[in-house]
């Protein structure tokens, strides 16, 4: 049942983020941390359908002590995570956070994070507080 709810949440139409006109967020999900892991990552797509550029930064979540925007970068076959201070979306711009690339790094969970739950992610959009909700899934939606 909880799995079904998570799936339904995923199928909801793209949701506009609160207090961030023009920003459309889609395909948001968080990987359920495997046992023993206190961190995980959030993935979603962003689209700026407005006419003004958007700058997103200041990520946080009540469910994690630290949240950072990261990018996994390959140097040869060595994977490194680099911190990104902000995301800029010009009018009409898109960005995708996907496994192995850009991701929101969620560190030090404040409690158990189980598949079926939803996690709130907060951020600033051009300095205004905004948020989105992402379902916790066992696996990437595409692998279902």
């Amino acid at each position: 049942m909880s799995r079904l709810l998570a799936l339904l949440a995923l199928l909801l139409p793209m949701t506009p983020a609160l207090a961030c006109p023009g920003l459309v967020i889609g395909e948001a999900w968080i990987r359920e941390p495997p046992p023993g892991a206190r961190g995980t990552a959030a993935y979603f797509t962003l689209r700026n359908e407005g006419s003004t550029p958007l700058v997103l930064d200041g990520w946080s979540s009540p469910a994690f002590a630290h949240v950072m925007l990261h990018e996994t970068v390959l140097t040869g076959d060595r994977a490194e995570m680099r911190h990104r201070s902000q995301l800029s979306l010009p009018a009409g711009g898109r960005e995708a956070l996907t496994p192995g690339g850009l991701h929101l790094m969620l560190m030090q969970a404040t409690g158990p994070i189980a598949a079926g739950a939803a996690v709130t992610l907060q951020f600033n959009c051009n300095g205004q507080a905004a948020q989105l909700s992402a379902p916790v899934l066992e696996e990437a939606p595409s692998s279902r």
Binding site: H66, M68, E80, M81, M105, M107
Partner: peptide, 29 residues
Amino acid sequence: DGSGGYSIDHTSSIFLIDPKLRVIGKFGL
């Protein structure tokens, strides 16, 4: 990792080892 902890940058390829311990395959990201 910027939050008081650490992360480990590492080789992310998957290796295929054959029955004679030869590293016969390597698959990158």
